[in-house]
Amino acid sequence: MVNEFLPIGVLIILAVALAIVVPTLGYLFGPRRYVPAKSRPYESGMTPFGPGTRRVSVRYYMIAVLFILFDVEVVFFLPWAVVFKELGVPALIEMGLFALVVVVGLVYAWKKGALEWE
């Protein structure tokens, strides 16, 4: 069981090394000619004003909450799908009830306008 994941560990170590080496190359070989205007935020030539990070629309927050709700439910489907053939019809009924709860949640969010983007 552990042996299945050790090779992935090896790959992760090598991938991290690669991902660190690449920007280091740019750091070593790239020129550094400092001009104050270069370090200003790029706004298509306009002079930047005000803070760069501002208040964000609450819509994004709503999407994140809905995502957590439904993604947790999606995760439950996977182990169920693996053992489904052994369990048969009772598992189908149980998952049908579970999916019904998911659908009710989705319909509620939909009717409440949580999915609208205006």
Partner: peptide, 10 residues
């Protein structure tokens, strides 16, 4: 590789 890397001041 030979391009300058910029980091915004803030």
């Amino acid at each position: 590789i030979f391009k300058e890397e910029l980091v915004p001041a803030e």
